[in-house]
Simulated assay, not measured.
Amino acid sequence: MPVTDDDELRAILDHETVAVVGCSSTPGKDAHEIPRYLREHGYEVIPVNPHADEIFDREAADSLADVDEEIDIVDVFRPSDEVSGIIDAALDREDSPVIWTQLGIRDEEATDRAEADGRQVVEDRCMKVEHQRLC
């Protein structure tokens, strides 16, 4: 089952490095503003977007496989029908203990696979909202 407990969410929010899949270079979009908020609150944000060269003055990775840094949280800003492939990419990594899907984004089967692999999953929640509420 996805994480819903406030204490577990607080522990997850203590992580530092967030790979944002679907991070946008367009100010005003949630996929830009929420990662910007996370950066402003001390998180190391790694933008993952094959259609952007640079976001937040940082080179954007084309995929999770292209991220050299260790990832604590994979934050997903892509449609629900793309979650399965993103989770598979996260599971291919030794790191990324947490997969977080933003509001309205869920895939029960992919969540089950991630949890069976020992990953924590937060789904259908906004990381910014939860950070403001709990931290």
Rank of each mutant, 00 (worst) to 15 (best):
S63G: 01
A110T: 11
M1N: 14
L13F: 01
V74P: 05
Q102I: 15
V83K: 07
D68R: 15
S84F: 07
S84W: 06
Q132L: 11
D7K: 12
D14S: 07
E130P: 11
F77E: 05
V21E: 02
D124N: 06
P79L: 12
E108A: 08
E130T: 14
D75H: 08
R10P: 04
F56M: 10
P50E: 14
R78K: 05
C23Y: 04
A90S: 07
V76I: 09
R119P: 03
E16T: 13
D107K: 01
H51Q: 11
D88W: 11
V74F: 10
T17Q: 08
V122Y: 00
D72Q: 01
D92R: 15
A65M: 11
K128G: 11
D5Y: 10
D92F: 07
A31V: 03
A60T: 13
T101C: 11
S25P: 02
V20F: 10
G104Q: 13
D6N: 10
V20H: 04
E70C: 01
Q120T: 08
D53R: 09
A110C: 09
L134C: 09
V74A: 11
A61M: 06
D92L: 07
D124F: 05
V20N: 03
D30T: 05
S25D: 08
D81H: 12
E40T: 00
V74H: 07
Q102V: 15
F77L: 04
P27M: 02
D112K: 14
S24C: 04
L91E: 08
G28I: 03
P27K: 01
G42L: 12
D88G: 09
V76E: 00
T111M: 15
R39E: 07
V67F: 15
E123S: 12
G85E: 10
D75E: 13
I87P: 10
R58M: 09
D53Q: 11
S25T: 12
G42D: 12
V3R: 01
A65V: 06
H15I: 02
I71D: 00
K128S: 09
P35Q: 09
D72G: 00
R119L: 02
S80G: 11
E33H: 03
E130D: 15
K29R: 10
E70T: 08
E123N: 06
L134Y: 07
I34R: 02
S24L: 04
R113A: 13
D7L: 13
A89S: 12
V83R: 05
H131G: 05
P35Y: 08
R39Y: 15
R36A: 01
I71H: 00
L91I: 10
C23P: 05
V3A: 02
D72S: 01
T26W: 06
Q132K: 06
R39V: 08
G42Q: 14
K29V: 04
D95R: 12
I105Y: 04
P50M: 07
E108K: 09
I87M: 07
G22P: 04
E94Y: 07
R106F: 03
D6Q: 11
A60G: 13
Q132A: 06
T111F: 14
E109Y: 04
D92E: 15
V129L: 12
A31C: 04
Q120Y: 03
E123Y: 08
E108M: 09
V98L: 01
H51S: 06
V18P: 03
P79Q: 15
N49G: 03
V98Q: 01
A114T: 13
H15D: 09
P47W: 06
D112G: 08
L9A: 15
A114L: 08
W100C: 01
T17A: 10
D62R: 14
D57L: 09
I55G: 10
E109D: 14
